[in-house]
């Protein structure tokens, strides 16, 4: 852990300027991942700019949807009655993540920016392209149970660990960002990148850009939504696979759907192909299975010294079918 400076500026603009001018500066919010990385040597910033009291901490009504301040803690977001009623998938995803203590610390802006829990990424004694570009990917051919089956590259097979982000990807959320050049808004599904040949970049954010809020659009069907997380321990574990889904069902037919998948890719995986396959389909297991298979047509299993992760493909199919079945039943 190298020595570091700490600053708590007066406002967000000053914080952005402070980070932008130093290549080795980083924003500090809840700290749950960054402080971990300081100790592991994965992150080696020379300056931390504390933004916890600079970004909004309110959840406000906005155009039939909600705007969530980047400083809203995960626990408060999950407990918000509007979120629980109108976007249960988001409340459930938040509650499925981490522990009560961590949810009291982690923020709306920070959670999506947490980095992969790939064990090789977190261990500075093993090569990792994400940590040290060009050093190689140790996960390929290693322990791959927690690794990707969609969108991976020869350079990186890591998965994104956030549960909350999977729900946000399904809900068509938008990310409001303040940067050195001003504001911009990014569709949440475009925030995270696939690894390609630059796995060191998790997101499209530029250095110095700060998430200030995440907006949820009005989405009536989200009132019937759910997050299903499958993991190796009953609680306090990262997803093997997860499904965030909202469906609009009437008369035994799926009219519309929003689906995102977790634990399977470098980013929360919006399942457009599955959604397309579901629109107009009957509310049967066969339809759900066909939708899952459409989405997973290009899935690639990773062999591994632990038996690999081929099981994730059928597991994800089974989980998506079960989630949609439960939602449709709830609807009826």
């Amino acid at each position: 852990m190298r020595p570091l400076d700490y600053r708590a500026p007066a406002d967000a603009a000053e914080a952005v300027a402070a980070v932008a001018e130093r290549p080795d500066a980083a924003f500090l919010a809840g700290g749950t991942n960054l402080v971990d990385h300081l100790k592991l040597g994965v992150a080696r910033p020379g300056l931390l700019v504390d933004v916890t009291s600079l970004v909004p901490v309110e959840i406000t009504e906005q155009g039939g949807g909600l705007s969530i301040g980047a400083g809203v803690r995960n626990a408060d977001l999950a407990a918000d009655p509007r979120v629980r009623r109108r976007y249960p998938v988001l409340a459930q995803a938040l509650l499925a993540g981490a522990s009560g203590q961590l949810r009291n610390m982690a923020t709306t802006g920070g959670n999506p920016l947490q980095r992969t829990r790939c064990a090789y990424f977190q261990d500075v004694s093993t090569p990792c392209n994400k940590r040290e570009p060009g050093s190689g990917c140790s996960a390929i051919g290693g322990v791959t149970r927690q690794h990707a089956i969609l969108g991976a590259s020869d350079a990186c097979i890591a998965t994104h660990p956030s549960d909350m982000a999977v729900a946000l990807a399904a809900l068509d959320a938008r990310v409001r960002v303040l940067g050195p050049g001003g504001d911009r808004t990014i569709p949440f599904v475009d925030l995270h990148r696939l690894p390609g040949d630059a796995p060191e970049r998790d997101t499209v954010l530029e250095h110095g850009e700060l998430i200030t809020a995440i907006d949820l659009p009005a989405l009536p069907m989200a009132a019937r939504s759910a997050y299903r997380k499958v993991r190796d321990r009953a609680s306090y574990a990262f997803a093997l696979v997860s499904v965030a889904a909202a469906v609009d069902v009437a008369g035994g037919v799926v009219r519309d759907a929003r689906i995102a998948l977790g634990g399977v890719a470098h980013k929360p995986w919006r399942a457009h192909r599955a959604e397309d396959a579901l629109r107009g389909a009957t509310t049967t297991d066969d339809s759900y299975r066909a939708a899952a298979e459409a989405e997973l047509a290009d899935a690639v299993a990773q062999p591994g010294v632990d038996g690999g992760n081929a099981f994730k493909i059928p597991l994800l199919t089974r989980t998506l079918v079960a989630t949609l079945r439960d939602l449709a039943t709830e609807e009826a």
């Binding site: 700490y6 700290g31 749950t32 402080v35 931390l48 009560g100 203590q101 009291n104 610390m105």
Partner: peptide
């Protein structure tokens, strides 16, 4: 509120 003091600077 309950938090983890090991991840709090």
């Amino acid at each position: 509120r309950r938090v983890l003091s090991c991840l709090t600077l």
